[in-house]
């Protein structure tokens, strides 16, 4: 076992144990991320009328997929990092021979692992409540995701998580200079919320709005992985290229800001 895997395993062990002690918190988190389920209700009900391009079965399936994507791409590093900087608890972490980003990333995975049981229960509940989502109806066939959908969906989710993490962490690094970076990042989150397909599928956007939004990174974070999971045709190449380019660009920016931030932090007397 290499030193790296040992390290990451140790991180995971401690973070998982820590997260288990916060299980009440994590339950609240799971509730906090139910927005797709709220929208599931609104849009299936709206689609019943037949006024929209897709029927209720498709809508239910879409929002269940969005719910799953949302659950595996939850990121909270900015709040954690802001707290560490403001409270001065970052300093001891900087003395360790490992970049703390690994610790934060592993903590997210541990938190997701803790959330699995809650998510599973909610997922089963949704599938029971909306059987048309997997059975299909007159307009869509049954939901039988093939290998392509599973692998593609999983990869897209990982890429979306990475991008979300980098985006938040990069914003978080500005805590070295600014107060309340989390509040600033909230603005970015609002764009993700309304433009990623979380509150409404891109299919019901007016054509011009849809085309414009596809040039932003947002729909690729939610709408794209959800479409892949549904086994629906999606712009696969464009999706992964967009995600990849943003990830690389943000990683570079992140490192630059990190190095400068550390200089500034130590100059302030950490």
């Amino acid at each position: 076992m290499s030193a790296w895997t040992r390290r990451l395993r140790a991180f995971f062990g401690i973070e998982y144990a820590l997260m288990l002690t916060y299980r009440a918190e994590i339950l609240l988190w799971a509730i906090a991320t139910c927005l797709p389920l709220i929208m599931l209700g609104v849009w299936t009900q709206a689609a019943e009328s037949g006024d929209f391009v897709h029927g209720p079965a498709w809508m239910a399936r879409y929002f269940i997929a969005v719910f799953l994507v949302r659950q595996v791409t939850i990121v909270w590093v900015i709040h954690h990092f802001e707290y560490l900087v403001v409270s001065g608890r970052l300093s001891p972490q900087l003395l360790l021979p490992v970049d703390p980003v690994w610790r934060y990333a592993v903590a997210h995975l541990a938190e997701q692992a803790c959330r699995i049981p809650i998510v599973a229960v909610m997922l089963v509940g949704c599938l029971l409540l909306f059987p048309a989502a997997w059975r299909g109806d007159a307009t869509v066939g049954p939901w039988v995701p093939g290998w392509g959908a599973l692998v593609g969906g999983a990869l897209a989710c990982m890429a979306a998580f990475t991008l979300r993490f980098l985006l938040q962490y990069t914003f978080g690094l500005f805590a070295f200079w600014l107060e309340r970076v989390a509040a600033v990042h909230e603005l970015v989150y609002l764009l993700i919320l309304f433009l990623s397909g979380m509150v409404a599928p891109l299919e019901v956007f007016p054509a011009a709005a849809r085309d414009a939004v596809l040039w932003t990174p947002f729909p690729w974070l939610v709408w794209f992985p959800a479409k892949l999971m549904m086994g629906e045709p999606a712009p696969v190449l464009r999706g992964f290229v967009t995600l990849g380019v943003w990830i690389v660009a943000l990683a570079v920016v992140n490192r630059v800001v990190w190095i400068r931030g550390l200089k500034h932090y130590s100059a302030m007397g950490a």
């Binding site: 002690t21 509730i31 906090a32 609104v42 299936t44 709206a46």
Partner: peptide
């Protein structure tokens, strides 16, 4: 003791109130 997410959970619950109750199943 540790319950920092209450605000986020409450905001999410209230979120459902953005739409008329009759618009739900």
């Amino acid at each position: 003791v540790k319950l920092y997410n209450i605000t986020i959970a409450m905001a999410a619950l209230l979120e459902a109130g953005r739409y008329p109750i009759q618009a739900y199943p």
